[in-house]
Computed example of a mutant assay.
Amino acid sequence: MVNGTENLIEAALALPVGWWNWYLLLETGNKIAVWCAIFGGIPIAAGGIKYFFKRKNVTSDATPTVAVNISNEDKIDSGELALKIYNDYKNVSDELRDAQQRLQESEQEVAGLKDAIDGLRTMEEQNGNSKYAIEAEKELANGDTKLAKALFLKVAEEKEKEGKSVNSEAAQAYRRLGSLAFLNSTQDAIDAYQKAVDLDPDNADGWNQLGRLLYRTGDMEEAARAYKRVLKIGEATKDDGLLAVAFGNLGVLRKTQGDLKGAEEYYLKALALNEELGRKEGIAIL
């Protein structure tokens, strides 16, 4: 390293005098600062250039060239993988949550993760994103969500540009993005689900997840609005499962607000529906 530095200095000093006019006018302290900046900046600049070219392919629209070697035999059931990812990331406080919340949160988040994994596997069968999707699933299984989120964001934005006819597909991509973002950032997840319900306001999953996240942030008014949208969709579609979930969530919200009578009314409605549906877990916790 010493010899290399000496050679660099000798080469610099051998330059024509005209090249050094600006340097010769500097004070001694500033001259030293120039050399420190040169020698200190070279490795930093090299690292920055290397990082730029390494990440450039991730955001490029061109077909990626990721070297992977994953066979179908390596894959596990998407539901099992979703549960593994959820358990690996689960690090939430139970202080403000009761058994109803914990059960529904677990069920809904695992279902969202499963859908995201299934979405990646669908991409694996398509041209253009297949190699990215394979690598994204591999990274996701190891706890890294960045590439998968980048893929779903790309799909969502591309579908949005295509127009209203594919709004439901764009919303689905945003919901998948939201289920992954939830593992790292509640606000990023809220932003993704808000986009989803704006694009597809009749999808109960988007409203339910948005309500749950808003509840976690303490925005009870907006959480109640989201849960009531789930209730309205359940009534319109005569879906007792949706109604049970909506009543249960509204009961949790009322209980948190100190309205025990209101909470009881919602819980009893959820209990009756869970009994009709034979949902033992829902019956046990209400």
Rank of each mutant, 00 (worst) to 15 (best):
V2G: 07
V2D: 09
T5R: 10
E6V: 12
E6Y: 10
L8M: 05
A12W: 05
L13G: 07
V17R: 07
W22F: 05
Y23G: 08
L25E: 14
L26G: 12
T28S: 11
T28G: 05
G29S: 08
N30H: 03
K31R: 09
I32Q: 08
I32L: 11
A33S: 09
A33W: 04
A37L: 06
I38N: 08
F39S: 05
G40P: 02
G41Q: 04
I42G: 10
G47N: 07
G47I: 07
G48I: 10
G48Q: 12
F53P: 00
R55T: 14
S60M: 07
S60Y: 03
A62F: 05
A62C: 06
T65S: 07
T65I: 09
V66C: 09
A67P: 01
N69H: 12
N69L: 11
I70Q: 12
K75W: 15
I76A: 15
S78V: 11
L81P: 06
A82L: 01
K90I: 06
N91P: 02
N91I: 03
V92N: 10
E95W: 15
D98T: 06
Q100M: 04
Q101F: 13
R102G: 14
Q104D: 15
E105H: 12
A111P: 01
A111S: 14
G119W: 00
L120C: 04
R121L: 02
R121I: 03
T122M: 14
E124L: 02
Q126M: 13
N129E: 13
N129H: 14
Y132D: 13
I134R: 09
E137S: 12
E139C: 05
L140I: 06
D144C: 03
D144M: 09
T145Q: 01
K149N: 01
L151M: 14
F152M: 09
E157C: 04
E162A: 03
E162V: 00
V166D: 01
S168D: 11
S168L: 04
A171L: 09
Q172C: 00
R176W: 06
R176I: 02
L177I: 05
F182C: 12
Q187C: 10
D191M: 08
A192V: 02
Y193C: 05
Q194M: 15
K195Q: 15
A196I: 02
V197R: 11
D198C: 05
G206A: 12
G206D: 13
N208L: 13
L214M: 13
M220V: 08
M220W: 08
E221M: 14
E222P: 12
A223C: 11
A223M: 12
A224L: 14
R225N: 15
Y227H: 15
Y227P: 09
K228Y: 15
R229V: 08
V230I: 13
V230R: 08
K232R: 14
K232H: 12
E235W: 00
A236P: 01
A244P: 00
V245M: 08
F247P: 01
N249R: 14
N249G: 13
L250H: 00
L250R: 02
G251K: 00
V252L: 11
L253N: 00
K255V: 09
D259K: 09
E264S: 14
E265H: 01
L268E: 04
K269H: 09
N274Q: 02
N274S: 06
N274E: 04
E275A: 04
E275G: 03
E276M: 13
E276S: 10
R279S: 14
E281K: 14
G282E: 01
